[in-house]
Simulated scan of single mutants.
Amino acid sequence: MSAIPVMIGMPRPRASDAEGAASDLPGDPLVDTYGRVHRDLRISLTDRCSLRCTYCMPEQGNEWLARSSILTLDEIVRIASVAAASGVTTFRLTGGEPLLRADIVEVVRRLSRIPGPDGRPVELAMTTNGIRLPELLPGLVEAGLRRLNISIDTLRRDRFHVLTRRDRLDDVLAGIAAAAASGLRPLKLNAVAMRGVNDDELTDLAQFALDHDAELRFIEQMPLDAGHTWDRARMVTRDEILDALAQRWMLTPVPERGGAPAERWMIDGGPRTVGVIASVTAPFCGDCDRLRLTADGQLRNCLFSTTEYDLLPLLRGQAGDAEIDGMLRSCVRGKLPGHAINDPGFLQPARGMNAIGG
């Protein structure tokens, strides 16, 4: 008999759902069979990116999504409106690199006007490499963008070039400076911790974030590279990250994490903080409230899912909103208790991170 993977915070199935009782109606909350209420939709706008990070995608030979399959603005808004009517309160725009989408400001404008379940507009956030922020940020803020996460894995030019295969560090730093000056808060910087790559920069990255009135969020490297070359031995763990930071600062846990992916610690008593997303060594699956929409219209209930729910035939056929809502609910009901990265039988998703959405 194969072992059942034990996940930290693994949810237990509800009795009614275990018996097959699924009576959700349009407008009801999106609740899975383990009682998790889904309030966050990650919307990927493109699989293309201006960088080629080694842990995400190969430098050459990428098979891009067919342009005809990429969701139009109207299709994105329609899906988001249906999701908001059933309790989704946050949209996060991802990619690839979302700022490469030509209509990005209008995407933000349209989505930011969608009313949430309480009648107030949903909260709109974005994860970006920051390269186009200096030119686009004023328009994005005016259109309704409220929060930003910017990826920065190293502060050294030589390492940045090797890691991303592009000499764009100055552009990323300019984007971070623009975000820091914009007043968008909280501002978060994301860094994937990698052994032998940037593990000697952890405190420098955290201090850089503090200097820009931002929170650094370290991310354990996950098996999401398109080349399937992930090696657990090269991953810097949550405990190793915290040990490195504790050499410089006193860290105090921030309580009431809720469904947030990052554990957070106050630095030297606060109010400044640092976070760690430990998807591998300390999974937070039991409180996950996220769904994902790929740029080509596939719904995913987990970053590591091997199953997708295709919305394109509904969007481009004669389906009504109730059918789209039904697909959302099918996706939610199909969600497993956890991603099982630590199980010997774990299978890495066929898509790379750039095609799934961050």
Rank of each mutant, 00 (worst) to 15 (best):
M1T: 12
G9H: 10
S23R: 15
P26S: 12
P26M: 15
R39F: 03
T46E: 09
R48D: 08
C49Q: 09
C49R: 13
S50K: 03
R52V: 07
E59G: 15
N62T: 15
N62H: 14
L65E: 11
T72C: 02
L73I: 09
E75I: 12
E75Q: 08
T89H: 04
F91K: 10
I104N: 06
P115M: 04
T128P: 00
I131M: 12
I131W: 06
L133M: 07
V141H: 04
A143M: 09
L148I: 15
N149M: 10
L155G: 08
R156Q: 14
D158I: 03
H161Y: 13
R166Q: 14
A178N: 13
A178E: 08
A180T: 15
G183T: 10
A191M: 11
G196L: 12
A214E: 08
D225F: 07
T229H: 14
D231P: 03
M235K: 02
L242P: 02
L242A: 06
Q247R: 14
W249D: 00
P255T: 01
W265F: 07
I277F: 02
S279M: 03
G286N: 04
D287L: 08
C288N: 01
L293C: 01
T294I: 02
S305M: 04
S305E: 04
E308F: 05
G320Y: 01
A322C: 05
S330I: 08
C331L: 05
G338R: 03
D343E: 07
